[in-house]
Design a binder for these strands. Sequence first.
DNA 1: CTGTACGCCGTACAACGTACAGTGTCATGA
DNA 2: TCATGACACTGTACGTTGTACGGCGTACAG
Lengths: 240, 240
Amino acid sequence: MPRPLIDLLWRDHPDAPAGGRRGPRARVATGDVVATATRLADAHGLAAVTIRTLAAELDVSTMSVYTHVNSRDDLLVLMADAAHATVELPAFGRQGWRSRVRAVADANRALLARHTWLLDVADERTALGPGTIAKYDHELRALTPLDLDAVTQDAALTFVLDFVRASARAAVPTAGAGELAAHWPEWGVRLASYLGGEFGLAQQVGAAAGEAQQGTRDPDFAWRFGLARVLDGLAGLAGA
Amino acid sequence: MPRPLIDLLWRDHPDAPAGGRRGPRARVATGDVVATATRLADAHGLAAVTIRTLAAELDVSTMSVYTHVNSRDDLLVLMADAAHATVELPAFGRQGWRSRVRAVADANRALLARHTWLLDVADERTALGPGTIAKYDHELRALTPLDLDAVTQDAALTFVLDFVRASARAAVPTAGAGELAAHWPEWGVRLASYLGGEFGLAQQVGAAAGEAQQGTRDPDFAWRFGLARVLDGLAGLAGA
DNA sequence: CTGTACGCCGTACAACGTACAGTGTCATGA
DNA sequence: TCATGACACTGTACGTTGTACGGCGTACAG
């Protein structure tokens, strides 16, 4: 059984337990497992990260993976923290809170675009990792100009990041999209007949929104719209 | 093989195909399957909704379930639409947009509190269901006082609902929470030693936020905070 | 009465995470 | 130097999941 998760998360820290030196040298390190799993997830989605394919990719036996990682759930935490550690954290300098928040939002949007699978990792233990904590610390600084108390500052950051996550999620084709597209010719007419004249507003707005979404015209309208709303929403805190 | 999903979604509509009258009478209807699955999901989470336990609950054989539902994925869509159909859609009357939006947010919060598993259903085909469409139509009306164009109106509603979803998700203990709590005595001190004096802001704010979250003091601070931000954010659209 | 559409069911398969019981290898304490 | 024991690694096996497939019996249409 490998070291506990907390030590695996901090495995690069000087104080991290190195583990005994006995026995054969490990052919792969925990970092390799995490990196390979991340590559798989980037390429084929989180569902493609199975212990078996991961082991094959690492050229070790299936069960060998458990030498470096306690469980698949732990692995996801390690992957998430490693991903968080990759985001750049440039000092904000003299920027005002608006451009700071904008920078944070953009960075997270890019992160989630690179690693869509992060949307499917919801494990509280991620908060224990060095990458996650460093990122959190940095992002809190985006809000210091607003001079909020601690609880409010945390809530404000959560508010921003939740928007980014939702926005990123909308950009991903969800389950059943293929089915829908495949049957749309039949189902579309069927649906129209069911609807008849009812729900006119929904039909009109839905059609317009759907058209705008897949048309090349302004692909990220929703992003700019939402981010503007977020900033306007936070603006009320500036004067308080 | 049962009827296609679109017809199952609209199975209560007068024009829905009734299916032939031959063969033995069905012991359960699609609606029963959906209702039972919903009960299971409410009580034990979506993971507890397996075809086998569902069949046992309905007192039929495992494979019989597939007579009434095409697949588990389809079932989730049916469950989601049925849940959407339960929300009340009271006319807004003379209310202004602020209280309308507030009502929509509250209704969705209550819905997600009743059926937490809705957070785990992300299937685009849900949008085809009568309950979902009726709900969408109603919620769009919350924004009509703002007099937005169709695309913006849809984006604004999405903005509100995404906030509610994120808020609801935060209220649910995520995976690994048990593990975390179990090992916290050891891991807490370990983490403190790893952190040392670094990331002071994160430590301070994180501690305050964590304390406030589990303290009885103001359990839904984040909700009120976020909703206020959302409303403030939308306010900018009123004057345009 | 007969054909057939339809509800129901038992068996079986592939894939998953992972527990368990090893086997072999190497640094170390005697 | 040698025995000890820690450690990386592996094969087998179990329980669980969704569901494809084929068969069986029922009750209505002709």
